[in-house]
Design a protein around this nucleic acid. Structure first.
Length: 414
RNA sequence: GUGGCUGUAGCUCAGCUGGUUAGAGCACCGGAUUGUGGAUCCGGGGGUCGUGGGUUCAAGUCCCAUCAGCCACCCCA
């Protein structure tokens, strides 16, 4: 039994759930397309250094969540824990800088070695967009608007809140970090052990700590916005102005931080209360430093990623499957004619299920069970007349129709 | 990675302080109905009680371990 279970934190996506995923992906892709995004895909695994260099040596993802292994050729490989690094790598190795700015949409599985919970899996799926090569705040606004639009289209927007913050540019962040560390040093005794470690590696993260002692210390900490230089303030102001103009509500959350240096300016998250502890549904921001850090020529970028499972959960019951037409042969002589009829209807665009086995009653039962919209009954009587009986399984009414015009008769069931 | 809760049929669950062949509803299969489904009635199949060990005359029930899920922390999508 246990070795027949899917590995921890993974699960099979059966047709019902798959339709839920499909709805999220298809909706997102269609909306993103209106904003100029084209779908692409990067490999599911990359050389480990792509993520290590990109996510930093201190991030949780790199230190404890990567699925890494050495392949038979001795290469260090990692299953992608997120896709921005892969897209950035692709941007460079495929020479996309020639076409910059590029707008890319993706959907696919990601892998993180975490302790599973509802809405948190080891293999999960994300959709995301990346706008690479566009520097201004307008791009940030539009990226957020694309996300908001997708949440609208999925009908879940009213259950989410947009949290917004700015990380400023590098200069502002360096200035603030220095002041912050200086302040925290004076109260280091009150910090949690974890935060003491973060003090050297990742001090901004302390602002987001949920430890009570940390929070008391953080409450009196210098305020980041006081250290934003003029350019950073102007950038953030424009982002807010744009969101206001588009009627996209947001809540400024000064504790919304990103630990990594290549992030700058806009950071945002659409969160929800409806999913328990896993509240983040769509998260993103600006990563102007990323491509430079990976060895490319400095190129700005903005984007977000969203969890398909989480969005699908918010959406509720998946749409029902398309209802088929059941072709029901009666008697041996009808078998082959029913087969060719089925094939013809499929060529004409219908979803067709041909019942086999059992008597007519059994086949009708089956037709009912698979939620067929109609049954096309083909027996010797009909064959002799070159027709078929079409029974509407909703109303129970039926009529005979010539085979030649059957597809037209069935048109409303397509 | 830490702490807590849970694990009985495909699904939802019952099974009292350990005590005969482990039950129900739904679902599934067959029949009533060999050219007509949904309703009803009758019948049937299906469980190594998550797994492994231990205690006991006796374990679904108690103990330990392990696996998985869930909840919180952590982190995030």
């Amino acid at each position: 039994m246990s070795d027949l279970q899917p590995a921890r934190g993974t699960h099979d996506i059966l047709p019902d759930e798959m339709r839920g995923h499909r709805r999220v992906i298809d909706t997102a892709r269609a909306v993103a397309e209106r904003y100029g995004y084209d779908e692409m895909a990067t490999p599911i695994f990359e050389f480990s250094r792509v993520f290590k260099r990109t996510l930093g040596d201190t991030s949780d993802i790199v230190t404890k969540e990567m699925y890494s292994f050495t392949d038979k050729g001795g290469d260090e490989i990692t299953l992608r824990p997120e896709n921005t690094a892969g897209v950035a790598r692709c941007f460079m190795s495929e020479g996309l800088a020639q076409n910059a700015p590029v707008r890319l949409f993706y959907a696919g599985p990601m892998f993180r070695y975490e302790r599973p919970q509802k809405g948190r899996l080891r293999q999960f799926h994300q959709i995301g967009i990346e706008n690479i090569g566009t520097p201004g705040a307008l791009a940030d606004i539009e990226v957020i608007a694309t996300g908001a639009h997708i949440l609208d289209a999925l009908g879940v927007r009213d259950r989410t809140v947009l949290e917004l913050n700015t990380l400023g540019d590098g200069e502002s962040r360096d200035a603030y970090r220095a002041v912050l560390v200086e302040y925290l040093q004076t109260r280091i005794g009150e910090l949690s052990g974890e935060s003491r470690e973060r003090l050297t590696r990742n001090p901004l993260r302390i602002l987001d700590s949920k430890d009570e002692g940390d929070r008391r210390v953080v409450a009196d900490a210098p305020i980041f916005s006081d250290y934003l230089n003029e350019a950073s303030q102007a950038f953030f102001a424009e982002v807010r102005e744009g969101l206001d103009a588009l009627g996209i509500a947001y809540a400024i959350n000064p504790r919304l931080v990103r630990g990594l240096d290549y992030y700058s300016h806009t950071a945002f998250e659409f969160t929800t209360e409806a999913l328990g502890a896993q509240g983040a549904v769509m998260a993103g921001g600006r990563y102007d430093g990323l491509i430079g850090m990976m060895g490319g020529s400095p190129t700005p970028g903005v984007g977000w990623a969203a969890g398909i499972e989480r969005l699908a959960m918010l959406c509720g019951d998946p749409p029902p499957a398309r209802r088929p037409i059941a072709v029901v042969p009666v008697g041996d002589a009808a078998r082959i004619p029913a087969l060719t009829l089925s094939e013809g209807l499929r060529r004409a665009g219908f979803r067709v299920d041909m019942a086999a086995g059992g008597n007519l009653a059994k086949r009708m039962k089956r037709a009912n069970k698979i939620a067929a919209v109609a049954a096309v009954i083909l027996g010797e009587d009909e064959l002799a007349r070159g027709s078929a009986t079409v029974r509407d399984l909703q109303s129970g009414t039926q009529e005979e129709a010539p085979l030649a015009s059957l597809a037209d008769r069935l048109a409303r069931y397509r």
